[in-house]
Write a protein that binds this DNA or RNA. Structure first.
Lengths: 242, 242
DNA sequence: CTTGTCTAACTTGTATACAAGTATTGTGGC
DNA sequence: GCCACAATACTTGTATACAAGTTAGACAAG
């Protein structure tokens, strides 16, 4: 048994979460971090004993992960899918798609309130940087984009976000934990990009928005490399734990 | 008890479906058809007795419907959400978004195989019209769009489709059953639009594609009216049944 | 008539039991 | 050694049981 694996998902994000959500969150981040290799098979019973819960919440978790395309439910066992570079590129295709759509709506609206909210989130991010809290930073980063998307009040666009969010959250979390350790000065650039984004919204400047989005994606492109290296580290960590 | 409600969802589409999927499909179409009013509350036990299954599959179904934004899970009972005109417009926003994205990919690829598949589906649709089979027609109509979307091999775009599909399927099904009864000559136009779409793909003609998409949406705009009328009819039908 | 409290009947989330089906493994026959 | 086949140990899907919490309503006190 590998129940010696420490939990990767922040406990404080699971305040009112059910057992199923907890299992899903933890499994998700382990899969994305490469701790659970793609191709391996997860069975309900196995997961149930691993997380000391019954099959009911595990079933719930596996259904969730399947809907996020992280596993594929088969006749016998759920097979873990690969999060290849193509996959990650696809995720950013979708982000680009919906954030562009959102921006087109935003330019027709009053964005004063939104800009205010985003500024607040930005300040939170800066504090998180100051105290080197990768989890807080990730939380605010995800919130930043969620706030923008929510602001246009489009339930189906928001549904797409809701589906994407868990994976994105884990990706960001892993990448940020990495950078706080190794590439601390990345954050100045990240902050600048976000401020550029706010400025684009304030001025309703499409070109600026596209520019900041692409910078954001370039940033993330780097984070894919972080991810692969983190997979090395995490799996090494596990081996040495055993 | 209103267990006298006849099943609206085609039995033959539920070949290998689990009890949960059956319940979900039937609940979904009833909600969309207006048979279950928005605002009403569904409890797991109530649904379990209604469909003569246990709570496990019902839970599964409710989770599904919640992820499709048809119900909202609350502390006590799931509340049925309204499928307003705004909602339906949103669904077509998303369709437009992803199908446009897909087309941009298609113009860079060899579409010969796709055109062949689509032509086959078209012929099926014509047969369905000839035999006035609304269910078959709807099936092929949904398949038509799914085939296009699948062809670009983009798992995240396809995920968005998978989320949208059940609602769309029910919408189309209801609308087509309506039209076969009342507006039979609508179908000539629908067929023409689809052929226009295929032609746009064959020629990789963006303008033609946008034109056919918009015609398709105009068609659907009409089907929204069908939907409201169907809600009248279905609910009348229920009243007279009691 | 209003208000507060207690009880009873709901609700969900989780655990467990059971049935049906599917891989796997081991054994007997060759 | 190898193949056929049966027994076994898995798997999922569904039903049921139980615990904890919430709502609603009855009923008594003011």
């Amino acid at each position: 048994m590998t129940d010696s694996i420490p939990y990767l998902y922040p406990e404080k994000w699971l305040n009112k979460a059910s057992a199923g959500e907890r299992v899903a969150s933890e499994l998700r981040i382990r899969i994305i971090a490469g701790l659970i290799e793609s191709g391996s098979k997860l069975s309900e019973n196995q997961m149930a004993t691993e997380f000391s819960v019954s099959r009911s919440p595990v079933r719930e978790a596996l259904k969730l992960l399947a809907s996020e395309n992280l596993i594929r439910l088969e006749r016998m066992g759920a097979v873990v899918l690969e999060l290849s570079e193509k996959e990650i590129q696809e995720i950013y295709d979708v982000r680009l798609l919906i954030e562009t759509f959102v921006f087109e709506r935003l330019v027709k609206k009053d964005t004063a309130q939104l800009v205010k909210e985003l500024s607040k989130t930005m300040e939170m991010m800066k504090i998180a940087i100051k105290y080197k809290d990768a989890d807080d930073f990730s939380y605010e980063d995800v919130l930043f984009h969620e706030t923008i998307i929510r602001s246009i009040d489009h339930s189906h666009i928001f549904m797409i976000w809701k589906n994407l969010k868990p994976t994105l959250e884990s990706l960001i979390l892993i990448s940020m934990r990495m950078r706080f350790k190794e590439k601390y000065d990345d954050f100045e650039r990240i902050i600048n990009n976000h401020e550029l984004y706010i400025e684009a919204i304030r001025q309703k400047d499409r070109d600026l928005m596209v520019e900041s989005l692409h910078k954001n994606f370039d940033d993330v492109q780097g984070s894919v490399e972080d991810l692969w290296r983190s997979q090395q580290i995490y799996s090494k960590g596990v081996e040495s734990d055993d």
